[in-house]
Protein backbone atom coordinates (compact mmCIF):
# COMPACT_ATOMS: atom_id res chain seq x y z
CA UNK A 1 0.00 0.00 0.00
CA UNK A 2 1.22 3.49 -0.77
CA UNK A 3 -0.65 6.05 1.26
CA UNK A 4 2.08 8.63 0.72
CA UNK A 5 1.49 8.48 -3.03
CA UNK A 6 -2.27 8.19 -3.07
CA UNK A 7 -2.78 11.20 -0.81
CA UNK A 8 -0.54 13.43 -2.90
CA UNK A 9 -2.37 15.45 -5.48
CA UNK A 10 -1.43 14.67 -9.05
CA UNK A 11 -1.27 17.81 -11.12
CA UNK A 12 -4.32 19.34 -12.71
CA UNK A 13 -7.03 17.75 -14.75
CA UNK A 14 -5.59 14.25 -14.71
CA UNK A 15 -5.73 14.19 -10.91
CA UNK A 16 -9.36 15.27 -10.93
CA UNK A 17 -10.26 12.62 -13.53
CA UNK A 18 -8.35 9.99 -11.56
CA UNK A 19 -10.09 10.74 -8.28
CA UNK A 20 -13.51 11.19 -9.85
CA UNK A 21 -13.25 7.94 -11.80
CA UNK A 22 -12.14 6.02 -8.71
CA UNK A 23 -15.10 7.44 -6.76
CA UNK A 24 -17.49 6.46 -9.55
CA UNK A 25 -16.03 2.97 -9.84
CA UNK A 26 -16.30 2.39 -6.11
CA UNK A 27 -19.83 3.78 -5.96
CA UNK A 28 -20.81 1.45 -8.80
CA UNK A 29 -19.18 -1.53 -7.10
CA UNK A 30 -20.93 -0.70 -3.83
CA UNK A 31 -24.35 -0.50 -5.50
CA UNK A 32 -23.75 -3.79 -7.34
CA UNK A 33 -22.73 -5.42 -4.06
CA UNK A 34 -25.93 -4.24 -2.40
CA UNK A 35 -27.91 -5.49 -5.37
CA UNK A 36 -26.35 -8.94 -5.28
CA UNK A 37 -27.24 -9.30 -1.59
CA UNK A 38 -30.84 -8.37 -2.40
CA UNK A 39 -30.96 -10.82 -5.30
CA UNK A 40 -29.68 -13.64 -3.09
CA UNK A 41 -32.17 -12.90 -0.32
CA UNK A 42 -35.00 -12.73 -2.86
CA UNK A 43 -33.86 -16.04 -4.37
CA UNK A 44 -34.07 -17.80 -1.02
CA UNK A 45 -37.49 -16.36 -0.21
CA UNK A 46 -38.88 -17.14 -3.66
CA UNK A 47 -37.56 -20.69 -3.58
CA UNK A 48 -39.09 -21.39 -0.18
CA UNK A 49 -42.40 -20.06 -1.53
CA UNK A 50 -42.15 -22.61 -4.36
CA UNK A 51 -41.42 -20.10 -7.12
CA UNK A 52 -37.63 -20.20 -7.63
CA UNK A 53 -36.01 -17.31 -9.50
CA UNK A 54 -34.03 -19.32 -11.99
CA UNK A 55 -31.98 -16.29 -13.08
CA UNK A 56 -30.97 -15.34 -9.55
CA UNK A 57 -27.73 -17.31 -9.20
CA UNK A 58 -26.34 -16.23 -12.54
CA UNK A 59 -27.42 -12.64 -11.90
CA UNK A 60 -25.78 -12.53 -8.47
CA UNK A 61 -22.54 -13.96 -9.85
CA UNK A 62 -22.63 -11.49 -12.75
CA UNK A 63 -23.14 -8.56 -10.37
CA UNK A 64 -20.22 -9.79 -8.27
CA UNK A 65 -17.92 -10.05 -11.31
CA UNK A 66 -18.80 -6.52 -12.40
CA UNK A 67 -18.31 -5.22 -8.87
CA UNK A 68 -14.99 -7.05 -8.61
CA UNK A 69 -13.40 -5.59 -11.74
CA UNK A 70 -14.83 -2.10 -11.17
CA UNK A 71 -13.63 -2.21 -7.57
CA UNK A 72 -10.24 -3.60 -8.58
CA UNK A 73 -9.66 -0.57 -10.80
CA UNK A 74 -10.66 1.78 -7.97
CA UNK A 75 -8.36 -0.15 -5.63
CA UNK A 76 -5.49 0.56 -8.00
CA UNK A 77 -6.16 4.29 -7.65
CA UNK A 78 -6.37 4.05 -3.87
CA UNK A 79 -3.33 1.80 -3.52
CA UNK A 80 -5.60 -0.69 -1.77
CA UNK A 81 -4.37 -3.89 -3.42
CA UNK A 82 -2.46 -6.29 -1.22
CA UNK A 83 1.26 -6.23 -1.79
CA UNK A 84 4.38 -7.39 -0.03
CA UNK A 85 6.29 -4.49 1.46
CA UNK A 86 9.61 -6.17 2.33
CA UNK A 87 11.59 -3.97 -0.06
CA UNK A 88 9.57 -0.80 0.28
CA UNK A 89 10.05 -0.56 4.04
CA UNK A 90 13.85 -0.73 3.71
CA UNK A 91 14.45 1.86 1.01
CA UNK A 92 15.55 5.48 1.24
CA UNK A 93 13.03 8.01 -0.14
CA UNK A 94 15.07 8.38 -3.30
CA UNK A 95 15.34 4.62 -3.87
CA UNK A 96 11.67 4.36 -2.97
CA UNK A 97 10.83 6.76 -5.80
CA UNK A 98 12.65 4.53 -8.28
CA UNK A 99 10.88 1.47 -6.90
CA UNK A 100 7.50 3.15 -7.28
CA UNK A 101 8.39 4.18 -10.82
CA UNK A 102 9.45 0.63 -11.70
CA UNK A 103 6.27 -0.77 -10.19
CA UNK A 104 4.06 1.67 -12.06
CA UNK A 105 5.79 1.09 -15.39
CA UNK A 106 5.56 -2.68 -15.01
CA UNK A 107 1.89 -2.41 -14.11
CA UNK A 108 1.31 -0.22 -17.15
CA UNK A 109 3.09 -2.70 -19.40
CA UNK A 110 1.12 -5.58 -17.90
CA UNK A 111 -2.20 -3.81 -18.41
CA UNK A 112 -1.16 -2.87 -21.93
CA UNK A 113 -0.49 -6.53 -22.60
CA UNK A 114 -3.85 -7.55 -21.15
CA UNK A 115 -5.58 -4.80 -23.16
CA UNK A 116 -4.02 -6.03 -26.39
CA UNK A 117 -5.15 -9.57 -25.60
CA UNK A 118 -8.67 -8.31 -24.96
CA UNK A 119 -8.59 -6.27 -28.18
CA UNK A 120 -7.71 -9.35 -30.24
CA UNK A 121 -10.37 -11.35 -28.43
CA UNK A 122 -13.13 -8.81 -29.07
CA UNK A 123 -11.83 -8.03 -32.57
CA UNK A 124 -13.76 -4.75 -32.92
CA UNK A 125 -12.34 -4.18 -36.41
CA UNK A 126 -13.53 -7.59 -37.55
CA UNK A 127 -16.92 -6.92 -36.01
CA UNK A 128 -17.18 -3.64 -37.90
CA UNK A 129 -16.36 -5.35 -41.19
CA UNK A 130 -18.65 -8.32 -40.59
CA UNK A 131 -21.50 -6.02 -39.64
CA UNK A 132 -22.89 -8.20 -36.85
CA UNK A 133 -21.75 -10.58 -34.14
CA UNK A 134 -23.56 -13.41 -35.90
CA UNK A 135 -21.69 -12.74 -39.16
CA UNK A 136 -18.39 -12.55 -37.28
CA UNK A 137 -19.13 -15.94 -35.70
CA UNK A 138 -19.93 -17.47 -39.10
CA UNK A 139 -16.98 -15.99 -40.98
CA UNK A 140 -14.20 -15.86 -38.39
CA UNK A 141 -15.36 -18.44 -35.81
CA UNK A 142 -15.25 -15.71 -33.20
CA UNK A 143 -18.25 -16.32 -30.95
CA UNK A 144 -17.56 -13.65 -28.33
CA UNK A 145 -20.37 -11.36 -29.45
CA UNK A 146 -23.06 -14.04 -29.71
CA UNK A 147 -22.31 -16.13 -26.60
CA UNK A 148 -25.56 -16.41 -24.59
CA UNK A 149 -26.01 -16.45 -20.84
CA UNK A 150 -27.79 -19.51 -19.46
CA UNK A 151 -30.70 -17.97 -17.60
CA UNK A 152 -30.51 -14.19 -17.99
CA UNK A 153 -31.65 -13.85 -21.59
CA UNK A 154 -28.72 -11.51 -22.18
CA UNK A 155 -25.67 -11.93 -24.32
CA UNK A 156 -22.61 -12.82 -22.32
CA UNK A 157 -20.75 -9.84 -23.76
CA UNK A 158 -22.72 -7.58 -21.38
CA UNK A 159 -21.00 -9.33 -18.49
CA UNK A 160 -17.61 -9.60 -20.19
CA UNK A 161 -17.62 -5.94 -21.17
CA UNK A 162 -16.37 -5.08 -17.69
CA UNK A 163 -12.94 -6.43 -18.76
CA UNK A 164 -12.13 -3.70 -21.34
CA UNK A 165 -13.64 -1.11 -18.98
CA UNK A 166 -11.33 -2.38 -16.24
CA UNK A 167 -8.32 -1.93 -18.55
CA UNK A 168 -9.40 1.61 -19.43
CA UNK A 169 -9.99 2.57 -15.80
CA UNK A 170 -6.73 1.04 -14.63
CA UNK A 171 -4.94 2.85 -17.46
CA UNK A 172 -6.24 6.23 -16.26
CA UNK A 173 -5.21 5.50 -12.68
CA UNK A 174 -1.72 4.44 -13.72
CA UNK A 175 -1.29 7.53 -15.88
CA UNK A 176 -2.22 9.69 -12.89
CA UNK A 177 0.25 7.76 -10.75
CA UNK A 178 3.01 8.43 -13.28
CA UNK A 179 2.12 12.10 -13.27
CA UNK A 180 2.36 12.15 -9.48
CA UNK A 181 5.77 10.49 -9.65
CA UNK A 182 6.97 13.05 -12.19
CA UNK A 183 5.72 15.84 -9.93
CA UNK A 184 7.51 14.34 -6.93
CA UNK A 185 10.76 14.19 -8.92
CA UNK A 186 10.74 17.93 -9.52
Amino acid sequence: MEPELSTQKAPGALARIDAGLARAELALAARLTGALALVLAAAAVARSLGAPLIWADEAAVGLMCWAAFAGASAALAQGAHVSVSILESKLSPRAGWWRALAETLILAALLGWLASVIWRWLDPAGLWQAGSGQRLAETAFNFVWVEPTVTLGLRKIWLWSVLPLFCLGAGVHLAARLARLAEAAR
Binding site: R47, G50, I54, D57, V150
Partner: peptide, 28 residues
Protein backbone atom coordinates in the same frame (compact mmCIF):
# COMPACT_ATOMS: atom_id res chain seq x y z
CA UNK B 1 -47.17 -30.00 -6.89
CA UNK B 2 -45.12 -27.23 -5.35
CA UNK B 3 -42.10 -29.45 -4.71
CA UNK B 4 -38.69 -28.07 -5.59
CA UNK B 5 -37.03 -30.45 -8.03
CA UNK B 6 -33.40 -29.91 -9.00
CA UNK B 7 -32.89 -29.87 -12.75
CA UNK B 8 -30.23 -28.56 -15.08
CA UNK B 9 -31.08 -25.11 -16.48
CA UNK B 10 -32.30 -26.65 -19.73
CA UNK B 11 -35.60 -25.40 -21.11
CA UNK B 12 -37.19 -28.77 -22.05
CA UNK B 13 -36.35 -30.30 -18.69
CA UNK B 14 -37.57 -27.32 -16.69
CA UNK B 15 -40.76 -27.06 -18.70
CA UNK B 16 -41.62 -30.68 -17.92
CA UNK B 17 -41.49 -29.98 -14.20
CA UNK B 18 -43.36 -26.71 -14.50
CA UNK B 19 -46.18 -28.54 -16.30
CA UNK B 20 -46.30 -31.00 -13.40
CA UNK B 21 -46.92 -28.08 -11.05
CA UNK B 22 -43.54 -28.60 -9.42
CA UNK B 23 -40.89 -25.89 -9.10
CA UNK B 24 -37.90 -26.73 -11.29
CA UNK B 25 -34.85 -25.50 -9.38
CA UNK B 26 -31.57 -25.38 -11.28
CA UNK B 27 -28.50 -25.54 -9.10
CA UNK B 28 -24.87 -26.45 -9.68
Amino acid sequence: AGRKIRTVPLAPEMEFWSLLGAAPTPMP
